[in-house]
Design a protein around this nucleic acid. Structure first.
Lengths: 215, 215
DNA sequence: ACAAAAGTGTTGCATATACACCCATGG
DNA sequence: CCATGGGTGTATATGCAACACTTTTGT
């Protein structure tokens, strides 16, 4: 059926993902550069339209794949952005998501049909973004910081096995503050969020760390 | 601008409110009965389309007023419902809200342009609802139960002054379980969520309760 | 043997839970 | 004076935060 009422016709639903990583202890977000107007040559978050045969989670998965070829990201809904003028093209609301991924397992496209560049940006060096993506990113960081301890959103940040010190650095860098190492370890083991694999790191310049895995 | 791409044209944005109250210790939700197809004569939650010049919060406020004449409700976003077939008419996503109100201060319309009845239903006697509103209601109850201690969502459940036992009953009825009276009181006073007014209930059959107000 | 980073355990404090007694009112 | 519900305080357990020493490895 056609929607003809001018009060609410020509509306669109977008999905937008703030994809995060931590590389060498630096908290980063993935951005793409638009090839076409509006916001030509502006950096934005990954996103696109939700199709009529998809729910929003499915659309987010597809858009992520189309824009970057990345799969198997754990992401979670994070907010709704609905200012009437947030897109200059037409009335579009955005359902926003956050996700976290291991930068070393990601191959991504530098260019696609609609993008001319793509890259990871350190959180404190993010350029001004198109649409209302500055606002979406700010909210996403806030939600990530809240969820980091209560959900398994970080479970794709590292390979299957990882060291506790590296996870510790990741938390500190995402939260932007220091966390006590001993309490951090206790917290994760007591709640059985991670599990000792019995394995050890190899060829380190220091005492080798144990390897853990998520449960 | 017109949206012509068949993949994502004719989409709509709806807002849906689960409006709750507690009356004589019974947890209830407000429903309206549809006058027209689809779901003619079915009970549903309060809701409607988001107009092009509104953000979703504004739309929710307007819809609530139009469908019930109720104003000044504190409500909070609660979820996104986007199954492609959730509305038989066209592709509609729903942004859902929860709100709580004092049943005694509410005058509502039994009939409007689009509704032929409206009423409060005890949570355990809710009839099958139209659209996916059963699902939305279930999620809303879950979110309300989570938010009840951390937000001021209940602050419109009672008149300005209220007794602690009545608030206690409301919590128990919403949560569906018993809460220790003494710890409940301690919790609310210690966090300065409520404040002693120095006043007392009058003409009760029992020992008069103190009157409190939200802070 | 020393520097650098990894591993571990204890103690105090704050918060949440469990629980029992006294008080005011109406009948 | 008794039944009903309202008000208050204490003791314990639990979870969180602060903190210091020992171990392994490479140089």
């Amino acid at each position: 059926m056609q929607i003809n009422n001018p009060l609410y016709k020509n509306q669109g639903i977008h999905v937008v993902l703030s994809l995060f990583t931590v590389e060498d202890g630096i908290f980063k977000v993935f951005l793409i550069k638009r090839k076409n107007p509006p916001f030509k040559k502006k950096w934005i978050l990954i996103g696109g339209a939700c199709y009529n045969n998809e729910d929003v989670d499915t659309a987010m998965k597809r858009e992520l794949y189309e824009k970057t070829r990345i799969k198997n990201v754990v992401f979670e809904q994070c907010g709704v952005f609905s200012r009437p003028d947030r897109s200059p093209v037409c009335r579009m609301i955005a359902i926003s998501y956050i996700g976290v991924i291991d930068i070393n397992r990601v191959k991504y496209l530098k260019e696609t049909e609609k993008t001319e560049d793509a890259d990871w940006f350190s959180i404190d060096r993010v350029p001004p973004l198109g649409y209302d993506h500055d606002e979406i990113l700010a909210k996403s960081i806030e939600v990530l910081r809240q969820k980091i301890f209560d959900s398994d959103i970080l479970k794709n940040l590292f390979p299957k096995n990882f060291t506790l010190p590296s996870l510790h650095k990741a938390y500190e860098s995402i939260l932007g503050k220091q966390i006590d190492r001993r309490n951090f370890r206790k917290y994760l083991l007591q709640r059985e969020i991670i599990k000792d694999t019995g394995l050890y790191e190899e060829k380190t310049g220091r005492k080798p760390s144990k390897l853990y895995e998520f449960k």
